[in-house]
């Protein structure tokens, strides 16, 4: 299945914007599988360097993971202060503590403006943006987290261990 909507300026993009490989992850900060995928993706970024552009989109399963939505909102709030990826890393590295006070603590560690961060945390429009991302992911065929898209097409293979890296190296070497 194809990714809709395609990648745009409103996405969170890391790496070379003109890379030949565009890897999109739909993830949930409270999902243990995403937590396991986190170092795997970091390693793929390291191995592929300039060949890879990474995009992260939110897919919080709120009912299963009650703190996932607020964690996603925290990443967006950090984005408003130019630190999306720092917060993204912080959340996955501290996945077991994602309550509100922990989020504020992480924001403090990242030297964010806390007053603004807390305002954004309570901002319904930001929460709605995250929910819209969930919905568009679902319409693209995301059925669990993490789900990956490679150059706009859903990746159905395994991402465990070095499976995804080997797949990307084979296909794009």
């Amino acid at each position: 299945m194809a990714l809709r909507p395609p990648i745009s300026d409103t996405d969170h993009i890391q790496g070379n914007p003109d890379a030949i490989i565009e890897l999109v992850e739909y993830g949930d900060y409270q999902c243990p599988h995403c937590g396991r995928a986190y170092p795997i993706i970091k390693n793929i970024q390291k191995e592929l360097g300039d060949k890879l552009k990474l995009v992260f989109r939110d897919f919080p399963l709120e009912k299963a993971h009650p703190q996932a939505l607020m964690a996603a909102v925290a990443s967006e709030a950090a984005d408003n202060q130019g630190k999306f990826w720092d917060m993204h890393d912080m959340l996955f590295e501290n996945q077991r503590r994602l309550n509100r006070s922990a989020l504020v603590e992480y924001a403090t560690t990242l030297s964010l403006d806390i007053v603004r961060f807390e305002q954004d945390l309570a901002d319904e429009t930001i929460a709605q943006k995250v929910k819209d991302e969930f919905y568009s992911g679902m319409r693209s065929g995301v059925n669990a987290t993490p789900t990956f898209f490679i150059n706009g097409e859903k990746y159905e293979g395994s991402w465990e261990g070095d499976d995804l890296l080997v797949y990307l190296l084979d296909r794009f070497a």
């Binding site: 919905y135 679902m138 059925n143």
Partner: peptide, 13 residues
């Protein structure tokens, strides 16, 4: 489990 968790989330839609 994954499928039903997704549907649980989809109820509002």
């Amino acid at each position: 489990g994954d499928q039903m968790a997704l549907y649980n989330e989809m109820l509002q839609y």
